[in-house]
Nucleic acid binder design. Structure first.
Length: 942
RNA sequence: GGGCCAUUAGCUCAGUUGGUUAGAGCGCAUGCUUGAUAAGCAUGAGGUCCCUGGUUCGAGCCCAGGAUGGCCCA
């Protein structure tokens, strides 16, 4: 019985065992885990526990994605981040129900539905039928998107999402309108609004995209009559008509030919929208700018002097400036419209810029926001000669019946023929387009419903509310304020079908529209029961019972209902009212988290409705996440085919690797995503996974009865636990500061430090000691503790992997904590972990120096270590743990004042020979029966 | 064109109130290990901190201008 080969001794070791696979196979396994969470009600159970514990609420209110199209990686980042924060709060013991929601009304879905149905004109289908079809489509997209969100591993009340098309939600929308009407925050007014002539609807600012467009750039003469010319001339300093020296009589042009003597005088304007000329009523000048009176050939032209060289072009060389005047001096004068029988007034406006054009700005109050303001200021007629489809009305004179884009060309030709055109060329510029149909939009004066930003100090109140909200990043607060400061009056009405009706009535006698709060409240009550479609289908008496409503203007009691619907930004702006404000979901929310575009979108619309109705912000903290660009930092675009679908990405890489990616980038800034970036994160994932696997694999024979209390752990194990506490505390602190990326770095670093120092050192005691040796049980107790805390703090990010690992432990070890989401995030321990970390780092430094030795290396070596007394004492306290940590066969330690601060090392070959079983260098054969192994091993084998 | 933001190793990122030789992880190269093995350990290479000026004894950090990219607008 002398010969014993290695293989036999190998069988006597406690080598690691686990079912937890090295290969993650995430795309294949994750769907099963999603089903498992659902089946076990993991989220709901923990919520119930947190509630039973009487812990506080922490509500993240979901900004609704639009229920149209597939979710991309930008959605993934945002939605997973929300989930990470919800899970942090959940593990922290908070009551943190998450109610996801969808934005489901609106033009994009209506258009997609029409396309799906193959219908080109929305007038061709009955509104109620179209609404049914839109609802089907919206629900279809909700289902698809919900599947993807659930697949991400996100926790939430997926069976009861909020939907803007739900009857209760529609009721909330209308109730909010009623509340705004009661507070006189809502009014109906004529406004020059952005209008899409293709979709035949007013558009909100947020529904506009700027795209390049080529327009005719035209310079047009607005000629003065004799009398007007004399008046204009009298305001120019230095102008002397007699000295112009011209004797040529230029025949007058235009409809108001006067056959004047002397040179004709015109104000030269510039425009890129000739079709708006029929609505021209004024020419705006800059009050302070200098205007010149130029003699060019046989005529006189008025324009800003700084722009004259550019505007006059070749003719500038021969032009003579014979007088100047400021804009202010010309205020109130008139010239003639180039082809209609009326005057155009010279007015002042501060938006007149002197970069392009002539400094004399064609002003059509019906076709421009600035123009409209000027029109109101000067009490000018608001002409609107264009109908909803972009066809000129009778008001446009000779162009009646013509489409505006066609009229552009025709008007230029006519101007040319009449001599009013000075110059024309093609001009490419960035022009507003409809975000959905991508056709150029126009400004058009129409009657719309508005929320006033300045009535009742709403704008100022909103700014005050912002000051009380926390923003991440901090500059978001300033940005949000700017978005309120520059917010124009909010047009909330739309002329489409798929939406919530604005329950306004039109008086049949005086034709005035009004929104009676009582009518709105009745509508809300009805919608809550039977949906908003009842506005169209129910008899009017349902909303305005006979004699209960009178026209505020004329007292009539005969009405029709208005057919406008509400802007979907208003709908998403009331999600906080619809979802929050219950005992389980208090208002306001603790956090909202969306992309940076929402400062202008949902953050703003939510804020305004909340401040208007309740006086304060609907959230306490606003966090913005960055944009997801491709690997080169360029925007991902669906149309260019560079966009990556969230579902596809999860099928390829798995949700957990992508979740780790979300943590690996600084989400507040713009981030990059692509195969190379994911590949890198995949490597990190593999490392983390393997180290978790190693810990699991050494707990296969460990149970609750084997647990060694913290106070009785071996010193090295206790140190590792202290370091783990420090690590976990810091991760939690990072989480609380929204530092997901900081937490990620910390986890990766901890993982590496644990692995290279501690886990490596533990192999020998774990493998070679007897299974129930106290040293081994101590190590296992520490491993279990470390694993448990590592899994808990990693679970918000690596939800799938941590749960998989937790489930790989015995039921005995898991105990009452069935799921990793039953674990506590923080553990109160009251230890000075900072000191432990310093000791750990010093030990790690020593280990590094020893490990760098190649001859001898590892167990071949023995170490003679001399350290200054304090350090020596610290190391001596580790007992044999010091030798274990250095992974050598023997260590001698002496205290010496002469030693280096970080210890003086002497590494030599160890005495004895390599034990065939434990590989350490020892005296062999002390046990009779086992010649090739050491005494310790012999005692185990025996 | 305007506002806001970003720019540090091949990649993802740290760099405290300006203060020695700018750090980590991943990747890469090399060596070891083969009892975590499609794993583990160690060593190493790799940086004009976007550029140009300025302030300062001293600047990755502060100031000004510019470049590139992104978001939101016009």
């Amino acid at each position: 019985m002398s010969e014993t080969d290695d293989r036999d001794y190998r069988a006597t070791l406690n080598l690691p065992q686990t079912e937890f696979p090295m290969r993650a196979d995430l795309p294949k396994r994750e769907p099963g885990r999603v089903a498992w969470w659902k089946e076990h009600g993991t989220f709901a159970r923990r919520l119930a526990k947190n509630k039973a514990d009487g812990n506080p609420h922490w509500i993240l209110h979901d900004g609704p994605p639009y229920a149209n199209g597939e979710l991309h990686m930008g959605h993934f980042l945002n939605m997973v981040l929300k989930d990470v924060f919800v899970k942090i709060a959940l593990l922290d013991g908070k009551q943190t129900p998450f109610v996801p929601g969808w934005d489901m009304h609106g033009l994009p879905i209506e258009l997609e539905t029409l396309k799906h149905l193959g219908i080109k004109d929305f007038h061709a289908i009955d509104p109620l039928e179209l609404r049914e079809k839109c609802k089907e489509r919206a629900l279809y997209w909700l289902d698809r998107q919900r599947d993807v969100r659930v697949r991400m591993g996100n926790f939430g009340d997926w069976d009861h999402p909020y939907m803007t098309i739900a009857p209760e939600f529609e009721a909330t929308i209308v109730e909010t309108l009623a509340a705004l009407a009661e507070k006189e925050q809502l009014y109906r007014g004529l406004r020059s609004t952005l209008w899409c002539i293709h979709d035949e609807t007013a558009l909100a600012e947020a529904e506009i995209e700027y795209e390049p467009k080529t327009s005719p750039s035209v310079y047009v003469r607005f000629k003065a009559t004799d009398e007007q010319a004399a008046e204009v001339l009298s305001h120019f300093v230095g102008a002397d008509v007699a000295s112009t020296g011209s004797s040529t009589v230029i025949p007058s042009v235009g409809s108001e030919a006067t056959g004047v003597e002397g040179p004709p005088l015109s104000v030269l304007i510039w425009t890129t929208t000739p079709w708006t000329l029929p609505a021209n009523v004024a020419i705006a000048l800059s009050a302070d700018a200098e205007y010149g009176l130029y003699r060019v050939g046989d005529e006189l032209l008025v324009l800003a002097t700084v722009l004259a060289p550019k505007a006059l072009g070749d003719a500038f060389a021969d032009a003579t400036r014979i007088g100047t005047a400021t804009g202010a001096q010309l205020d109130g004068l008139s010239v003639r419209h180039p082809f209609l029988d009326r005057d155009s007034l010279l007015v002042l406006a501060d938006y007149v810029e002197l970069e392009t054009g002539t400094g004399a700005v064609h002003t059509a109050p019906g076709h421009g926001a600035d123009d409209f303001e000027t029109g109101v200021k000067y009490n000018l007629p608001i002409l609107n000669p264009v109908d909803a489809r972009g066809i000129f009305t009778q008001e446009a004179g000779p162009y009646a019946g013509m489409h505006i884009w066609k009229a552009n060309k025709r008007i230029v030709e006519d101007l040319q023929a009449s001599g009013a055109l000075w110059r024309m060329h093609e001009y490419e510029h960035s022009y507003p387009h409809c975000w959905r149909c991508h056709n150029p939009v126009i400004f058009r004066a129409t009657a719309q419903w508005f929320i006033s930003l300045d009535m009742n100090h709403l704008r100022q109140n909103a700014l005050d509310a912002i000051a009380k909200v926390a923003y991440t990043p901090e500059w978001g607060q300033n940005r949000q304020s700017q978005m309120i400061e520059t917010h124009p009056e909010w047009c909330v009405s739309r002329q489409r079908t798929w939406g919530t009706p604005i329950p306004a009535l039109i008086c049949q006698r005086c034709n005035d529209s009004f929104l009676d709060p009582a009518v709105a409240r009745r509508a809300a009550a009805r919608f809550r029961v039977a949906g908003a479609g009842t506005w169209w289908s129910d008899p009017l008496e349902t909303f305005a019972p006979a004699d209960s409503t009178v026209c505020p203007k004329c007292g009539s009691t005969a009405f029709e209902r208005e057919k406008n619907i509400v802007d979907i930004w208003f709908e998403s702006g009331v999600t906080h009212f619809a979802v929050l404000g219950t005992p389980d979901l208090p208002w306001p929310s603790d956090l909202v988290l969306e992309g940076g575009d929402q400062y202008r979108g949902w953050f703003r619309s939510s804020l305004l409705t909340a401040v208007a109705v309740k006086g304060t912000a609907p959230y306490k903290h606003v966090v913005k996440n960055g944009w997801v660009n491709d690997e080169h930092g360029r925007p991902m675009s669906k149309s260019k085919g560079t966009g990556i679908d969230a579902r596809d990405a999860m099928e390829k890489w798995g949700a957990d690797v992508l979740r780790l990616w979300a943590a690996s980038v600084e989400f507040v800034d713009d981030v990059r995503f692509g195969p190379n970036v994911v590949g890198q994160v995949g490597n990190v994932y593999r490392n983390v996974r393997n180290r978790i696997r190693f810990m699991l694999s050494n707990l296969y024979d460990f149970g609750t009865t084997d647990v060694v209390p913290r106070e009785r752990l071996e010193p090295l194990d206790a140190l590792a636990c202290d370091v783990t506490d420090d690590f976990a505390d810091n991760v939690v602190a990072d989480y609380h500061a929204f530092g997901i990326h900081d937490a990620y770095l910390r986890i990766v670093e901890f993982d590496r430090s644990m692995s290279s120092l501690y886990l490596d050192a533990l192999k020998d005691p774990l493998y070679s000691r007897a299974a129930n040796d106290p040293r081994r049980r101590s190590a296992q107790s520490a491993l279990f503790y470390i694993l448990r805390r590592l899994l808990a703090v990693s679970a918000p990010v690596l939800s799938f992997t941590t749960e998989e690992a937790w489930q790989s432990l015995s039921e005995d070890l898991r105990g009452a904590e069935q799921s990793v989401f039953d674990l506590p995030l923080s553990v109160a321990h009251g230890r000075d972990t900072a000191e432990a970390v310093r000791r750990w780092d010093r030990l790690r430094g020593l280990r590094g120096r020893v490990a760098a030795s190649t001859e001898p290396r590892d167990f071949e070596a023995r170490v003679a270590l001399s350290a200054v007394p304090a350090f020596a004492k610290e190391l001596a306290a580790l007992g044999d743990g010091l030798r274990e940590a250095l992974v050598v066969s023997a260590v001698t330690l002496v205290a010496s004042d002469a030693a280096d601060a970080d210890g003086t090392l002497e590494i030599a070959y160890a005495h004895g020979a390599k034990c065939k079983r434990c590989w350490k260098y020892r005296e062999l054969g002390t046990a009779e029966a086992h010649a090739e192994i050491c005494a310790d091993c012999a005692s185990v084998v025996a």
